[in-house]
Design a binder for these strands. Structure first.
Lengths: 205, 205
DNA sequence: AAGTTTTGTCAACAGGCATTGACTTTGCAT
DNA sequence: ATGCAAAGTCAATGCCTGTTGACAAAACTT
C-alpha cells in the first residue's frame, strides 16, 4: 500500500521548544495523537510522527501513556468527553444544522468533525472497536437519549446516532462538499429524516 | 494492542488440495481475501493468512495480484460487482427487512453484511477511497436511485445510503445483536426512517 | 552549591510482515 | 518419452515501527 502522504491538515505547528513541563508535553502529545488518530486511524498512525508533531520524543509516549494503546484510549476519552455540549441545542434548528453540517460546508472548519472522524476510525478498525463500545454507550448514546426524551428515546437515540454516523461516512467517501441544488435537496431530505427522529413521540397503535 | 483473535466467521473451509489450476487458485485467494479484508480491514489482514485459507502459498499472491494492494483492489471490485440484486426487492418489505438486518439476528451468520463491511473498511483506507468513491457512485448510488425513482431520487438515494451505512457502523460498534423490546423498538424506528426515504415523493411547498 | 528527582534524548532491539528470487514440481505439447 | 512453460514451494531479506533501557540535562530541594 502506498505510504499515504503524511501531511498534516495545516502545516505542522512545530511547537516552539517548550520549557520543561511534563503537563504541557503530555498535553501536546495527547493533542497530536487525537489529531493523527482521527486522520489516519489507529493502525496507520505512527508514534514517531505524533512525537514529532508534539515536539517531543517517542519515549515520552511510553512514559506518559504506557504505549500506543494507552495513548489511543486516552485520546478517545478526551475526544468523546467534549460531547456534553448537546444540551442547550435548539430542537427546532438541530436537524437542519446537522444536515447542513453533513452536506459539508466548503468553508467550514474541520474542528467539529474531527471528533466524529475519530469515532468513525475507531469504529471501523477491528482493533479498536471493542474499546469504543462502552465509551459510546455511556458518553454518546446516553446524552442523546436524554436530550431526545419522550417515548422510546433509547431506540430513537440509537437510530439517530446511526444516521448521524452514516452521514459522516458518506461524507468521508464523497470527499468533497455538495453544491448547488443537489446540496439543497440533500439537506432537505436529511433534515426531514433527522427531524422525524427527534420529535417522533411514536404515534403507535 | 490486542492481537485481535483471528478466528474465521465460520471455521476455515481449509480447501482440499487443489489440482494445479491457476484460475481456481487465483479465485480461492480472491475469495479468502474478500472475506478477510472485510473482517479485519486492510492493515490487520495478513497475506500469510489469506494464503493459508486459500490453501495456497503467499508468493502466489504476488504472482497473481502483484501484491497486497493489488489483491485488495481486486477484491474490492469483485465485492462491489455483486450488488445488482437490488431490483426486484419489494418496496413495502424493504425498509423493515433492512432494519431487521441491522438490528442483528442473534442466530444468523453475518454473510449478508460482508460486502458492506468491506466497503466500509475500504472507505477508511486512504489509498482506496478514490476508487471507492467512483464505485459507490456508479454501482451503489445509481441503482438505489433508480430503484427509488420519483422526485429528488438522487438526494434520497444519498441519504438512504448514508443511513444504511450508519446502521452498519452502529452495529459494528455495538458488536452484539439487540434483543427483547429494545430490538423491537429499534426495528420500528429504523424501518420508519428508511420508509420515509423510500416513498417520500417530497410533499414540498 | 550539592544532591536528588523529574524530564527529555538517543540508540539499539525485536517482532511482524510484505516482498523477492531461486528452486522444484506438474502438466502439456510435440 | 522428453522438454518447456506454467504453477507452486521455500527460505531468506529488509523495512517499518513499537518498545526499552541507559544516559544527559534541567529543575527543584535543602
Amino acid at each position: 500500500m502506498r505510504p499515504v502522504p503524511r501531511t498534516a491538515i495545516l502545516d505542522r505547528p512545530l511547537a516552539p521548544p517548550r520549557r520543561r513541563d511534563s503537563a504541557a508535553t503530555r498535553g501536546a502529545i495527547l493533542e497530536a495523537g487525537k489529531r493523527q488518530f482521527a486522520q489516519f486511524g489507529y493502525d496507520r498512525t505512527v508514534l514517531r510522527e505524533i512525537a514529532a508533531e508534539a515536539g517531543a520524543d517517542v519515549a515520552l509516549i511510553k512514559r506518559y501513556f504506557g504505549g500506543k494503546e494507552g495513548l489511543f484510549v486516552e485520546a478517545l476519552k478526551s475526544a468523546i468527553g467534549a460531547q456534553d455540549r448537546l444540551r442547550g441545542w435548539d430542537r427546532a434548528a438541530f436537524a437542519r444544522e446537522i444536515a447542513t453540517l453533513m452536506a459539508g460546508n466548503p468553508h467550514a472548519q474541520e474542528d467539529r468533525t474531527q471528533t466524529f472522524q475519530f469515532l468513525l476510525r475507531a469504529a471501523t478498525s477491528p482493533s479498536t472497536a471493542p474499546l469504543l463500545n462502552l465509551a459510546v454507550q455511556e458518553r454518546f448514546l446516553g446524552p442523546i437519549r436524554d436530550w431526545l426524551g419522550g417515548k422510546e428515546s433509547a431506540a430513537r437515540a440509537r437510530v439517530l446516532a446511526a444516521v448521524h454516523i452514516g452521514f459522516l461516512v458518506e461524507r468521508l467517501i464523497r470527499g468533497k462538499a455538495l453544491t448547488g441544488p443537489e446540496r439543497e435537496a440533500f439537506i432537505d431530505r436529511a433534515a426531514a429524516t433527522i427531524q422525524g427522529l427527534i420529535d417522533a413521540p411514536t404515534p403507535g397503535p
